[in-house]
Design a binder for these strands. Structure first.
Lengths: 132, 132
DNA sequence: CTAAACCTTGACGTCGACGTGAGGGTCAAG
DNA sequence: CTTGACCCTCACGTCGACGTCAAGGTTTAG
């Protein structure tokens, strides 16, 4: 399939897909016209890429990681065990990031939930604590 | 306290603290010398700022939010109910972001956990599926 | 054949949260 | 007085993941 269709299927822009190739995340074949020719499996690859990019993994790491995932689905391909260390580092970074985001959400949630529908409660509070 | 000490207490750089002031997140007093003079409570404010920034909230929103939090601790100050909508939007965005990060971590965790200690398992698999 | 739709490769622009000097005051110790 | 630590205000640099033209070739429908 050509770039436009992959873009439609995955919901990412063509620019992003070209960028992914530039970063060696995808290596589409080429038609005689020079047009990119993506394999159907690239749609799934794009989903993985988006997920890992959204998680903040650097693209060069994703580039190393993807060929380790093909075929097997789970578990790294042989010869990829050198990836274990950086992968564990990223996993730990993600854990920390998730905790940070969760803490921030708790903060917002507390603010939202504890804010009264109108100012009546606050007005009462002010009245009760007035300096008289 | 002056900028250097606040930086040490909070672990953020002086540059960041000046940037926060530029973005109206902090409004330190000034000593006659022109030096910034932070209140002790600013240390706590900086922690909130860091948390919300790490969560991806735009600084102008944080700038609106902070004065709504002073004194009360929980619940918005009166006259801040106009913040509820954007706050709920951010909370929902955070929920989505946390899910994305969690999914990415699951992916990494699966890869890590399912990768054998050495190639023996894989070698066995290859042998078993050899084309003979 | 022509127009519309689709594709190509550059290459510069963007945005946010700072980093990193440059050039110069302020202040306490010796 | 001088040195060093500390502080100030510009103001340009950075980095990643694209956005957004510009100036073309290619393919397809009519």
């Amino acid at each position: 399939m050509r770039i436009g269709e992959l873009a439609r299927r995955t919901g990412v822009t063509e620019r992003a897909l070209r960028y992914y190739e530039e970063q060696n995340l995808l290596k589409p074949a080429r038609l005689p016209s020079g047009y990119r020719d993506y394999a159907p499996s690239d749609a799934e690859a794009v989903r993985h890429i988006r997920s890992l990019l959204a998680a903040g993994l650097p693209s060069h790491l994703i580039a190393e990681l993807l060929p380790c995932m093909v075929d097997t689905g789970d578990g790294l391909m042989p010869g990829c065990r050198s990836m274990l260390e950086p992968l564990e580092a990223e996993r730990d970074r993600l854990t920390a990031a998730i905790e940070e985001l969760t803490a921030a959400r708790e903060l917002l949630t507390a603010l939202i939930d504890r804010t009264p529908e109108d100012d009546s409660e606050y007005d009462a509070w002010v009245a009760a604590h007035a300096v008289a």
